[in-house]
């Protein structure tokens, strides 16, 4: 028997649908990291559901061969929450973009953090709306003037995904770089093993609308502090705030009770009908 060919390969988790992503898009790295993580976890593809909204990044489910739902813009976390509540046995990964998750879906992000359902949320942050041709997103720098929609910049403070996730109650918070699929794969594994809501912000360049992000590979570096990951929210907040947003690593891990539905089977419909009787 060939020792190498009966292994579970990341490739086994890919579908035959070819990505529409621009060559060089960071999202390829995220796709590879996800499939590597699934292979490492040796999860049966039918036990995993990958849920997304709309955007370049949100196209990811169809490129895998797990169960997927490519929903509508901004609502992936809600869809994932409903699926998890109805099917606690499934492994749920929700994925999408910074516009999808922090702008139109921002409210769901806050409440998914609070709710602490057992799922993993991967945001491919390219500080831009890729799919709609390069408008500013919530994470875009205020003085970025390349979009015709905001010719003098947004003048708005960029959204701070990690700090906000922390304040909202996420129990696993990490930042990664799409150019390092192996490192990201490990983080996805940790996130999926974490009981509760695990959030990974992936810096994922958009070479088409943010060509300057090609430089990210020279800028990102692991957090240079031994204190991380921490379970102390104050410490995590300190490092989130001090950082320029380009340090990677697991920042915060907290053991908190996971959202759970009651699994009583106490009554039948006849019992309920009794209450209406005169």
């Amino acid at each position: 028997m060939n020792p190498l060919s009966d292994k579970i390969e990341p490739k086994d988790y890919k579908s035959d649908v070819k990505p529409v992503w621009c060559p060089g898009c960071g999202d390829f790295g995220v796709l590879n990291a996800i499939t590597k993580a699934l292979a490492s976890l040796r999860l049966a593809p039918e036990q995993v559901a990958l849920i997304s909204g709309i955007g370049c990044s949100s196209r990811v489910p169809a490129y895998t061969n797990v169960y997927g739902f490519h929903g509508i813009h901004g609502r992936a976390l809600a869809l994932g929450a409903g699926l998890k509540a109805a099917r606690p046995d499934l492994h749920i990964v929700v994925a999408g973009g910074d516009g999808d998750g922090f702008s139109i879906g921002g409210n769901h992000f806050l409440h998914a953090c609070r709710r602490n359902m057992d799922m993993t949320y991967i945001v491919m942050d390219n500080e831009v709306y890729g799919m709609t041709k390069g408008q500013a997103s919530p994470t875009t720098a205020p003085d970025w003037t390349e979009s015709e929609l905001t010719p003098s910049g947004t003048h708005a403070r960029p959204f701070q995904p990690a700090a906000i996730a922390l304040a909202a109650g996420a129990t696993f918070i990490a930042r990664a770089f799409s150019g390092k699929p192996n490192t990201l794969a490990q983080m996805v594994v940790l996130a999926m093993q974490h009981p509760g809501f695990a959030f990974i912000q992936v810096l994922s360049p958009c070479p088409t609308f943010r060509p300057e992000q090609k430089e990210w590979k020279n800028i990102v570096r692991p957090f240079a502090v031994d204190a991380l990951p921490t379970s102390d929210p104050a410490l995590a907040a300190l490092h989130c705030q001090r950082d320029d947003g380009m340090s990677t690593g697991v920042i915060y891990v907290e053991a908190r009770p996971v959202w759970k539905r009651s699994d009583m089977q106490e009554i039948a419909i006849d019992d309920i009908e009794q209450e209406f009787r005169i």
Binding site: A49, I51, F69, G71, I72, G74, R75, A76, A78, L79, G80, A81, G82, L83, K84, A85, A86, R87, L90, N107, H108, L110, H111
Partner: peptide, 18 residues
Amino acid sequence: AEDELASVNMILGASYGG
């Protein structure tokens, strides 16, 4: 749910789950 946008998408997720 946090709002009706979430409500309808949550039930979509649950129903997708069977």
